[in-house]
């Protein structure tokens, strides 16, 4: 299991990296942490002819809070940097919590925030979480830069809005409103495996304790992070009763995901799990929002 030959470039600046990507187009792959890309190269499932290694570019690893309570995370920030960051814990507790569920310690020391987003594995946590948190990403190329919302960034399996000459430079996670709560529920064969099913719920209550806003996003539930917008919409304005939560979970699992059969679980089992986990996630998120936990 050795990778096929390729040309390797390790530019020291973003401009050089973007020029290389522009030059080589679809032939080139950007290398960040490599924890997903290199296994596929070792299996020869992926054989890029050019690798542009981003690891020598300064300034791409940072965790920066904004005055408005938002958080910016640089693309080359390693998972374990987020995992051990007090700033991340304060500004994006859901992201911070999820880090321990991503693979293993020795993978989190190399794997990067931006790499995971750009890889767009629908079973991974970060794409779903950034979607649930209304995150957006700064994409840069020799042509300039643009911001793309997570909702629009993830297109399908391993496919994003990134053009071949573009790089994801950083992610921005907006602040959660007051009286917010969050939850991430997963069922995995082993704790560190990709989840059979997972769901992130982010909710906010109004002053009367009714649901002011809800976002429900599933992972391992389709070709991209699956956002259950109708179920979330139905919760808005309602008191988060057990009944309302059960109805939202059932409807989300029945109508707003598209899980597939694979060797670890059938679509039917995954739908069942989606219902269970969504219910549990909403319960926990609303409890947190109400300051109960």
């Amino acid at each position: 299991m050795k990778p096929a030959p390729f040309e390797y470039y390790a530019p020291a600046t973003m401009d050089e990296a973007l020029a290389l990507l522009a030059e080589h187009g679809y032939e080139a792959k950007a290398l960040a942490g490599g924890q997903s890309l290199i296994p596929m190269m070792n299996f020869r499932l992926v054989q890029p002819s050019v690798l542009v290694d981003l690891n020598n570019i300064g300034g791409l690893a940072h965790i920066t809070p904004g005055a408005d309570g938002s958080l910016r995370i640089g693309a080359l920030t390693r998972h374990n940097q987020v995992e051990t960051s007090a700033v991340a814990e304060q500004y994006a507790p859901l992201i911070h919590f999820a880090m321990q569920k991503i693979a293993y310690p020795a993978v989190r020391t190399r794997g990067t925030f931006g790499g995971s987003l750009a890889h767009a594995d629908p079973s991974a946590e970060l794409p779903a979480l950034c979607t649930a948190l209304n995150g957006r990403f700064r994409l840069v190329s020799g042509r300039g830069e643009r911001w793309v919302s997570a909702d629009e960034f993830f297109i399908s399996l391993f496919t994003t809005a990134l053009e071949p000459d573009e790089l994801l430079a950083e992610a921005e996670i907006p602040a959660m409103p007051p009286r917010s709560g969050w939850s991430l529920m997963e069922t995995a064969r082993r704790p560190h495996d990709f989840a059979l099913m997972g769901v992130a719920a982010v909710v906010a209550l109004d002053e009367q304790g009714r649901c002011a806003d809800a976002r429900i996003v599933f992972l391992s539930a389709g070709e991209k992070p699956m956002s259950a917008q109708k179920a979330a919409e139905a919760l808005r304005g309602q008191s988060p009763s057990a009944e309302a939560i059960r109805a939202a979970a059932e409807s989300a699992a029945a109508n707003e995901i598209d899980p597939a059969d694979d060797i670890h679980g059938t679509a039917k089992f995954r739908r069942h799990l989606a219902n269970v986990l969504c219910r549990r996630a909403l319960e926990q998120a609303f409890q947190r929002a109400a300051g109960k936990k």
């Binding site: 299991m1 290199i38 070792n42 293993y104 020795a106 020391t109």
Partner: peptide, 24 residues
């Protein structure tokens, strides 16, 4: 395994554990 799961090849890279099979 050469795909980053088994961990037998883990070394310390700048003091941090990392898979040497997943780096060039």
């Amino acid at each position: 395994c050469e795909h980053g799961i088994c961990g037998a090849c883990s070394v310390l890279f700048d003091g941090q554990p990392a898979r040497s099979c997943l780096m060039f």
